[in-house]
Design a binder for these strands. Structure first.
Lengths: 229, 229
DNA sequence: CGATCGCTTCGGGCGCGGTCGAAGCGATTT
DNA sequence: AAATCGCTTCGACCGCGCCCGAAGCGATCG
């Protein structure tokens, strides 16, 4: 059996706390500079540089030079999916050491998960869409109904790229809620639209997102979801 | 950002070559004894025992004592999914060191992937089902059509547990073919049935499976698939 | 053009963890 | 009851790789 060593190479890269923090930070979906990532990782810039080099060389990260800054981002959605799945396992394990941490509540409430929304907000949206018969979600896949397509299109969410009405609709296990939320192309489009409309905005130095005043109205109108504080 | 350390814990476990080999071996879907796993990992029984203890404590493995043997297996499908996703990343990376290894050809031809079939055989089956309009597969999800349900049911594949006709149908990126094959409940049921009918049988000490003579006939009749040697 | 900034490279220190030999423990066999 | 077997625990060794200080390099700015 030879796939072992291959997956070990990748997993070992993710297995270092500093690098894992880097990857977690990049799960926010934005490209970040080396310094920012060093801060998130809690190490000095030189150490971070070493880690970033390894991650990039292995093809987990892509880099864009821009002036004297160097922006790093996840190299592909595949990497995001991998991190999601590792998180899912990490959160379902036995009562690991899991202290209450400041800012954790904000993350649990609403955050981005690579390219879509996650947290209580996202789970509530998914529940609402399911309850209204706009989306069908099961453990391994999902689909958007005709009524759902109409509704989402009405919200300005373009699903043209998603083929033949069944759309790229995928459940993603929410690590904080332990229930599925909407991922895939539908989740991503919904996330983009929510930012466009100013319903949510990013919280500094975090993957967390905050629901704005318009957001409360908009989400209530669109999905009947009333975000908790 | 605090999810970093959590995923690092899990990833670090997978990141050791010996442990990765253990997990790879268990991706075959069967429970294996500690000694067998030690052999697969290429370490002594004491070392393997240490690794197995850590994996079990972290909730990645489950153990069943049976007499003086102790059988280990993946603790949940979630773990299998995680390993799949890591493999997918590992195989799409840059030209990693990837020598030709004996037995590799057999694995590329057909193997089990935790609970479903993978390799050229599985990709061919998926292609055939898609071409016949029995299954629709996209990057993030899939569904079984009415005609597909009828066809699979006719083969004795029970999809009763899969709800409302859309079934748990999921694509799984095949690391050797780099194209999707059928996973999820449908893939698992199909795999079970293939073993029941004697179409395929396990190869000793490997995740590879061999297509039997009946298998060639059966697969040809059922899907129009002619397995290469 | 010198100063500053962002990032990387180099070098050395140090700790964590994988490894195996030896011994212990419980189940099974004769 | 003694011998064997499968597996785990203990103890010690040792090497990999994470880490940071110092220096180098390229871009930007005054």
């Amino acid at each position: 059996m030879q796939t072992g060593p291959h997956i070990a190479q990748i997993a070992a890269l993710v297995g270092d706390p500093a690098r894992a923090n880097v990857l977690s930070a990049l799960m926010g979906g934005r490209a970040l500079t080396a310094s920012e990532l060093a801060y998130h990782a809690g190490v000095t810039p030189q150490t971070a540089s070493s880690h970033l080099g390894k991650l990039a060389e292995a093809g987990l990260l892509a880099q864009d030079r821009q002036g004297r800054h160097r922006y790093y981002r996840l190299a592909s959605p595949l990497v995001g999916r991998m991190l999601e799945s590792i998180m899912a396992v990490a959160e379902t394990g036995p009562s690991r050491y899991r202290p209450h941490w400041k800012g954790g509540e904000a993350l649990r409430t609403a955050r981005t998960c690579y390219d879509h929304l996650a947290g209580r907000l996202a789970v509530d949206i998914a529940d609402a869409l399911i309850a209204r018969g706009h989306v069908v979600l099961a453990a391994d896949g999902g689909e958007v109904t005709a009524a759902g397509m109409a509704h989402l299109t009405g919200l300005g969410i373009d699903l043209g790229a998603a083929k033949r009405g069944r759309a790229f609709c995928r459940p993603c296990l929410d690590w904080s809620e332990r229930r599925p939320h909407l991922a895939g192309a539908v989740g991503a489009a919904l996330c983009v639209r929510a930012f466009e409309r100013g319903w949510v905005e990013r919280v500094k130095d975090s993957r967390a997102v905050a629901v704005t005043q318009e957001g409360k109205r908009g989400l209530s109108d669109a999905f009947g979801v009333v975000p908790q504080t």
